[in-house]
Design a protein around this nucleic acid. Sequence first.
DNA 1: AAAAGTAATTATGAATTCAATATTAACGAG
DNA 2: CTCGTTAATATTGAATTCATAATTACTTTT
Lengths: 230, 230
Amino acid sequence: MTKILQRNLYREVADRIGDLIEHGELSPGERISEKQLCEKFGVSRTPLREALKVLATEGLIELLPNRGARVVRLTFKKVKDTYDLMAALEGLSGELACQHITDKEIAVIRKLHNSMLDHYHQHDLKAYFELNRQIHEGILAASQNEVLQEMYSNLSQRVKRVRYSKKMTQAFWDQAVKDHENMINALEKRDSQLLGQILRDHLCNKLEVATLAGVIEDEAPDEGHSVVNA
Amino acid sequence: MTKILQRNLYREVADRIGDLIEHGELSPGERISEKQLCEKFGVSRTPLREALKVLATEGLIELLPNRGARVVRLTFKKVKDTYDLMAALEGLSGELACQHITDKEIAVIRKLHNSMLDHYHQHDLKAYFELNRQIHEGILAASQNEVLQEMYSNLSQRVKRVRYSKKMTQAFWDQAVKDHENMINALEKRDSQLLGQILRDHLCNKLEVATLAGVIEDEAPDEGHSVVNA
DNA sequence: AAAAGTAATTATGAATTCAATATTAACGAG
DNA sequence: CTCGTTAATATTGAATTCATAATTACTTTT
């Protein structure tokens, strides 16, 4: 049951532009020059433009008719809305996971959890985050709902650049670890309601972190949206 | 604050292909001929192919590399998964709506509700459905979460062809109306938890209807997915 | 000198052309 | 007659070319 993974040029280009946005090499609100990117990637405009259309559909960029493409500006509200949604989806994934997960899968997640705790005690933030990601991904996978996974993945993409530059306070970290303890317990008891609730609250906290990081410059002058420009 | 609505050729074509799929003029699993559609719409392959990429991203069709596009086959599981997701999103929209909705907006929905009841008593299914749609859309709009609305709209698109051919039993209809009564009450009390719960359960019932309609032929031979074909 | 209007340039939108892959048809061997 | 191989055809993938709209630079006028 291995997924067919299509490796079209347009998909490749879309992913690489996505990386550029994620890592800040294309700034929010920045105009995207087709010619420039064509030269950078060594492709013609056809697959590049296809990639832009796809990225616009995925919500990473916006297309101004006859005026090119821009990287979407992440306002605080947009990020907040996205996190609210992701929290709801994580909640659902928890509920579904409780219904479908096998003992073996729980054991795997328990192992990841223990490993994560080690990194927590060693204050290894990077390794902690990687394990954290794997745990949440594991629950998402256990939900057995591919549409859900697809949607979550898309939303995650959109706010990745905020996540990357987030700062972690010790207090938050402590709370996050506690949440994870409760998560595992709920999962082992297969208490779907409880796990759903924990996951919802857990992600809400993440938003606070993103906010504190102050990387979101709000109230940006929405250039290019008005017909008559100054 | 009116949205800029881009009217590119590719978007136009994508919408029209979406309509063809929705109304069954392009069957599930059916191979999509680029040339044929180009002639039908009177456009060249460039915007058409862009449209196909967008539709694939939106989950309506799937692209087989070097082998063209196919309309996505809706299995029972896929529809079930989508409905589960939509239920979660509707639940969230209810919770958020309770936080943001104004008395005036509630009054509008109440009016729609009463109008819907009239059609219910007159057994006017078509009019009932239209009002029903408007009510749910009103709550969704009151959530003030654009990302949520965008996601819901996309999911709705995917299963529209099933919805269209659904049959309505009297028992289900009675229950649906009762749900709506409770919804309005919860909304007026601004009981976000309750409204969220009602909306989740309400949509779950819809799934049963879709199932009963028997329009979903499951266990289809997944042609085109295996490398070696018979 | 500032503003408005016009020409030149550049970038985007879409059609066409060229190349590569897959499908079909024809052929021949077992 | 069936299976496998190869040639012909058709379709998709991507680059190029042409057309159109937007931006910039340059006049011209007040």
